[in-house]
């Protein structure tokens, strides 16, 4: 008599096994003993209960979430996509470069109060906002790729273009962070740059295996989580009141 494989016992436990597996368990003592042992382990796992959130939890989740939703991000993004023509993109990139250059120049010259008419803390605040926005835009691309549930060939031309646009900006922010000794931010931006480059250099149309490789790479690096953590730290720093003296590193 052919005994049930452990995999078949697991499927039977979860009600996804073949009908004959149940019939076999009725007559085979060895398989029944093995199944009962499996059952004990899985029932023990039921003891691992999740704590029940306190009354009003849903309202608190909404209250934390709502400020970020006031403007529909999806509509905002598509409108931005339409607005960002190549010429405008070049202007935005040039402005970002100028901002970073001014920031670095201010650092080097030690004349924080005078450079470009902005004080050090104000300039740093602008950088925090700019890097935060950059991380958010990068995160959106990666999230869209990771959560794309398409099973056939995938067209990533839109994500590819957006990744390409973000690479140069990323490089500037990374250099600024490195220059100012913010290793945490520069290290995440370094990883992000490699991921963005990979997306930017991928073919526009990917078969399912190629697409799965990109997704696996994004997931394996845990870059989304790191972006989230750094983004959250930057937001915290944005909220701290402006100091009158020289500010902290980016």
């Amino acid at each position: 008599m052919k005994h049930l494989h452990e995999e078949e016992l697991v499927l039977h436990y979860y009600g996804e096994g073949a009908e004959w597996a149940g019939e076999h368990l009725q007559i085979c003592q060895a398989c029944r003993a093995s199944f009962e042992s499996l059952e004990r382990v899985l029932r023990a796992m039921d003891r691992l209960e999740a704590p029940e959130p306190a009354h009003g939890y849903e309202g608190r989740v909404w209250n934390r979430l709502a400020p970020g939703l006031t403007k529909s991000r999806a509509r905002w993004w598509s409108e931005l996509g339409a607005w960002l023509t190549p010429r405008r993109l070049a202007t935005v990139a040039a402005m970002a470069a100028l901002l970073v250059a001014a920031f670095l120049a201010g650092r080097v010259s030690q004349q924080r109060q005078q450079t470009a008419g902005l004080s050090g803390p104000v300039r740093e605040r602008i950088m925090l906002v700019a890097v935060g926005e950059h991380l958010e835009r990068s995160q959106m691309i990666l999230v869209e790729l990771v959560n794309n549930s398409a099973t056939g060939p995938v067209d990533i031309s839109e994500e590819k273009q957006r990744a390409r646009d973000l690479v140069d900006e990323n490089r500037l922010y990374r250099q600024a962070a490195l220059k100012n000794g913010d290793r945490g931010v520069s290290s995440v931006l370094d990883e992000l740059e490699r991921t963005l480059l990979e997306v930017a250099h991928s073919p526009s149309k990917l078969d399912s295996a190629e697409f799965a490789r990109i997704r696996e790479r994004i997931e394996a690096d845990g870059i989304l989580f790191k972006i989230r953590v750094v983004g959250s730290n930057l937001r915290e720093r944005e909220r701290t009141p402006l100091a009158t003296g020289s500010g902290e590193a980016l």
């Binding site: 939703l69 991000r73 999806a74 993004w77 598509s78 959106m140 999230v143 869209e144 959560n147 794309n148």
Partner: peptide, 8 residues
């Protein structure tokens, strides 16, 4: 994330 990807 769900809100941002709702169009998908």
């Amino acid at each position: 994330r769900a809100f941002r990807q709702l169009r998908k």
